[in-house]
């Protein structure tokens, strides 16, 4: 599974590399001609595409037991990168872009909600680890990374739909805007409930 994911992370790298050198008229930006004229959108866009890949890349290693147990320093270092990139750069910039996203109000709502949840889960994971609450930290990190992986599932779902149902592009975009992260979050919740049954039982337990 890890290897499969690495391929997608690699494809995301290729997608992000399309914007190097910095240009306003390539790839996805063709569809954002009106937005990219604005300086605040430019800042958000390029912040997002230049930082988000590192988020998904460094996050990848964090769930790997050997690294977590054997190389604590590395886990700590990657963790700092992951959290600070999301909270300071990728998250806020994603939120700004969500307001201008394609697919009308339906897609915008989804992306705004996704950005806020992404920031929230990541922040909660940070607070948990500051308080040395490892279980809670892991729980929120699983949720945070599930949302990070929506970057993969959104593009993958779109590719599957395009090659099967061949829907009009924006109908398709609205569908994947919601399904991508909700799907991931459901998987994460199921996993969390299996792994930490005690967390889901009533809080009155000692």
């Amino acid at each position: 599974m890890g290897a499969g994911l690495l391929i997608f992370i690699y494809l995301l790298l290729l997608i992000s590399l399309q914007y190097i050198p910095l240009r306003n008229d390539v790839a996805f930006l063709i569809l954002k001609e009106n937005e990219i004229k604005n300086i605040h959108y430019q800042i958000a866009f390029f912040t997002h595409v230049y930082t988000s890949w590192f988020v998904i890349f460094f996050g990848f290693f964090q769930f790997w037991k050997t690294l977590r147990k054997g190389y604590k320093k590395l886990h700590l270092c990657f963790g700092y990168i992951y959290i600070s990139l999301i909270l300071c750069l990728a998250g806020p910039s994603g939120l700004v872009m969500s307001v201008y996203a394609n697919g009308g109000l339906i897609a915008k709502t989804s992306f705004i909600l996704l950005s806020i949840l992404w920031l929230y889960f990541t922040y909660k994971a940070y607070i948990a680890i500051r308080e040395k609450n490892f279980a809670l930290h892991e729980k929120y990190m699983l949720r945070s990374y599930a949302l990070t992986l929506s970057a993969v599932s959104l593009r993958l779902f779109k590719m599957i739909l395009a090659n099967t149902l061949q829907l009009p592009p924006m109908d398709m975009y609205k569908i994947v805007a919601w399904s991508s992260w909700i799907f991931n979050l459901i998987i994460a919740e199921i996993y969390i409930r299996r792994k930490f049954p005690e967390l889901t039982t009533s809080p009155t337990a000692p």
């Binding site: 997608f8 494809l11 997608i15 790839a27 996805f28 063709i30 569809l31 394609n102 959104l154 593009r155 993958l156 779109k158 590719m159 395009a162 090659n163 592009p169 975009y173």
Partner: peptide, 17 residues
Amino acid sequence: LKYEKNAKEYYDYFGRG
């Protein structure tokens, strides 16, 4: 033409476009 080019380049592929 711009939208056609974009559709040809990205519609069936792994990406948002």
